[in-house]
C-alpha cells in the first residue's frame, strides 16, 4: 500500500501523523482513503467542487503528478506520495 507523507501544516488534522499508509490504486483513491480517516483534511486539500486546491502539489516518488497522470496516476505497494505546498522558492 502506498505511503502518504504529510507536511507539518496538515499534521494538526492527522493527529500529528507524519506519514500515513493509504489504500487505493491511484493517487486520487489514496487521498480519498486519507480524508476518510481524517475528515478535517478534506477541505484543506480539496475545493468545494471536489477539485484539488491549486496550491497543493503532489509528487509520486519525487515526480510531479502533473507530469504523470494527475490524480489518476497509479500507485502501488512501495510508492511514496508527497503532499507539499506549491513550490515556494525563487532562484
Amino acid at each position: 500500500m502506498p505511503r502518504v507523507i504529510i507536511p507539518s501544516l496538515l499534521q494538526a488534522v492527522t493527529d500529528g501523523a507524519r506519514e500515513v499508509t493509504a489504500e487505493g490504486e491511484t493517487v486520487g483513491q489514496a487521498l480519498a482513503s486519507l480524508t476518510q480517516r481524517y475528515p478535517a483534511a478534506e477541505s484543506r486539500l480539496f475545493q468545494e467542487d471536489g477539485a484539488l486546491r491549486p496550491h497543493v502539489n503532489l509528487f509520486v516518488n519525487d515526480e510531479d503528478i502533473r507530469f504523470l497522470g494527475g490524480l489518476d496516476t497509479p500507485v502501488g505497494e512501495n510508492d511514496e506520495i508527497l503532499i507539499i505546498p506549491a513550490m515556494a522558492g525563487g532562484a
Binding site: L9, A12, S43, R44, L45, R53, H55, V56, P85, A86, A88
Partner: peptide, 9 residues
Amino acid sequence: YVCTECFGP
C-alpha cells in the same frame, strides 16, 4: 509561509 486553510502563500 503557507495558509493552513487553503495552502495559499
